[in-house]
Amino acid sequence: MVAVAPVLDISDLTVEFDTPEGTVRAVDHVSYSVDAGETLAVVGETGCGKSVTVLAALGLLGAGRIVSGAVTFGGADLLDMPAKKRRRLLGHDLTMVFQNPMTALNPVMTVGRQVAETLLVHEPKMSRGTARDRAIELLAMVGVPQPDVRYNQYPHEFSGGMCQRVVIAMAIANKPRLIVADEPTTAVDVTIQAQLLDLLRVAREETGAAVVMITHDLGVVAEVAERVAVMYAGRVVEMAPVEQIFRSPRHPYTVGLLSCLPRLDRDVSELIPIPGAPPDLRDVARGCPFEPRCEMSAARSACQNTRPPLMPADPNSVSACHFVDEVESWARARRGNVEEAA
């Protein structure tokens, strides 16, 4: 692999929330980076900190506090940057597609004006007429039918899928270098999901943007990503190229995720959770956070007492497991058992 400077580089990011019940460490020393033109998928169960990581990185976190870490975009420090400078990047070089398209749009502003606003904010000299024409072009580009009519409509007159197309139009309006898509297909109909993914792929090809694709859905991962970061309980537990994740995962949690994947004879592509629940993020236990649910650990003392650091597992991947070398044979044996049982 040629060494390219990453577009987005998150390193050692830690985010905490103060709640009445105590401090929640939602993101715990997370590091990942995306290279130009690359698609990185971030997967993990709900609540594992996928959204908080990117929101904190982009300075869009409402509550919550960044305890440590650094985030750079194109080499510039995003966290220490003055808000004004960051605003010039946001929506222009660095854009987001959100999880819930129905609430991501302002209900009392026409859809078209919301798209045009994205253009006008970054090019104040643009005339309103030009912005309008460009917005209509963008709506057409993302597959909104009758874009000149739809321009004047409000979000409640759009379906969820259509709203997401509008959000995508805003995200690609200024030819970004990075698109962060936070579960862009979770809230829409299964039939629409494939269309939206296609749209994102086309958008990415046209803009040459790198993509961070946050998702629950390993089907989506297989389809769009080049590299995968697996998160568990606020941390990255494994990161590897996509073929390798599917072929030979190097963390027991990833193995669990993959075995929940539907086989060809089933048609649900949603993750079926691994038995047990993620730990309470309030009490930072000493050992491996996955230990209570880990089938491979067998209550070994290293798992219970020492937190496994994220370490290279092989030339292409990193994994946070004390017994990373055992994962492959364990997974094979486990698969054998499961098939025998079936």
Binding site: G62, K84, R87, L90, G91, T95, M96, E117, T118, V167
Partner: peptide
């Protein structure tokens, strides 16, 4: 101000003044 569309506006790079006047206030007027 705590709604999703405010975050969208900020993610678009809308200055805080515009976020409040164009997005939050109009909704708050209702």
């Amino acid at each position: 101000m705590s709604q999703d569309y405010i975050r969208t506006a900020r993610a678009k790079g809308v200055p805080e003044y515009g976020v409040i006047s164009r997005h939050a206030l109009r909704n708050a007027l209702l």
